[in-house]
Computed example of a mutant assay.
Amino acid sequence: MSKYKRKNKKPGHREGEVRAKKHLGQHFLTDENVAEKIAKTLSFSGYNNVLEIGPGMGVLTKFLLKQDAEVHVIEIDTESVTYLQENYAELQERIHQQDFLKYNLQEVFKEEAFAVIGNFPYNISTQIVFKVLEMKEQIPEFSGMFQKEVAQRICEKQGSKTYGILSVLVQAFYYAEYFFTVPPSVFNPPPKVDSGVLRLTRKEDFSIACDEKLFFRIVKTAFQQRRKTLRNSLKTFNLPDNIREDTIFGRRPEQLGFQEFINLTLKIQPYAI
């Protein structure tokens, strides 16, 4: 008897399947057509390695394995890991039972480039993006599925009410493209909202002409009080009055593109502690 058979099965749960766990934010994609479309968002160009986050039962994995790349998967759920080990023999040495947010990926990839893809748990999707930004030197491409409003926010342009911290920080280093919307009906269990698939392609020159840590700090501080002008939201930087009189400080954060935030950081940099 398969170890996945369970007594007192919940409605909709079939024997031989991994049960989605609410505390892990799991919503398993069940539509293979959607999975194949997500796999095809990667170009598989300029890198040999692909890392899938949270593969579950491998509906996306099977399409990644058809590509000319070395596929690794990282999965925190023990039951899913066992399922993958039993059903994807070709992955055996490349299944990493780890927490993506805490794991040192250089243990796997050393200094090699790798793409990141996945059907990301809503509850940690923003943290995943921040970790990708930390490792941008090694990650030329990133794609996958988010809650729709988060995916749209990442790709949003300045001037929108949904434009925010993620929009600025991501777009400083990557080109962001929103591809398509996915309905709740293709998941088990279905989430309560639509999902959206995006791709981030790292810019050829992804360095910025200012202190990066200060840039991140300024963007985050500015959007914490997004309705205020920068003159008010950035008060904690204790800038001299003659600097604060610059016209850029009379604008609100959603009015600035990433390049203007870089210029703002350059103005503040000489006075930052």
Rank of each mutant, 00 (worst) to 15 (best):
K157R: 08
K66A: 02
Y83Q: 12
K161N: 11
I154R: 00
S125P: 12
S125E: 08
A69F: 03
K136C: 10
F109D: 01
Q98E: 14
V59C: 14
G56A: 08
V129Y: 06
N119C: 13
I154T: 07
V170Y: 06
F120I: 12
H96W: 13
S143A: 11
D68L: 02
G159M: 03
E93Y: 05
A113G: 04
S167K: 03
L133Y: 06
K136T: 04
G159V: 09
M135L: 15
N104P: 01
E134L: 15
V81L: 08
T61Q: 00
Q85D: 10
I95F: 10
S143Y: 05
E137P: 02
F109T: 01
Q97G: 03
Q158V: 13
M145W: 08
L133S: 10
I165F: 09
P140M: 02
F100K: 02
I124Y: 13
P121V: 11
A113S: 07
E134Q: 15
G159D: 01
Q152N: 05
Y103S: 00
L64I: 00
I165K: 12
Y103L: 00
N104T: 00
K62L: 06
V168L: 07
Q138V: 08
V168K: 00
E86G: 01
K62M: 08
M135F: 12
L101S: 01
K102R: 10
V170L: 04
K131W: 04
V50T: 10
V170A: 10
K161T: 12
Q85R: 11
K110H: 07
L60F: 07
Q92V: 14
E86L: 09
E137C: 12
T82M: 12
T162R: 09
K131G: 10
F63V: 00
V59F: 11
V73K: 04
E75P: 05
P55L: 07
S125H: 13
E107Q: 09
E52M: 03
V50A: 08
I76N: 12
F120W: 13
N48I: 02
L169V: 09
E70H: 11
V170M: 06
I95D: 02
L51H: 06
E107Y: 01
Q127D: 14
T82H: 14
I76K: 13
V129F: 07
I53T: 07
V50D: 04
E137G: 08
T162Y: 03
K157P: 02
G56K: 13
R153A: 05
M57Q: 15
E93D: 14
L65G: 03
V50F: 02
R153N: 09
V170E: 10
E107F: 04
L84R: 08
T126C: 08
Y83A: 11
G164R: 03
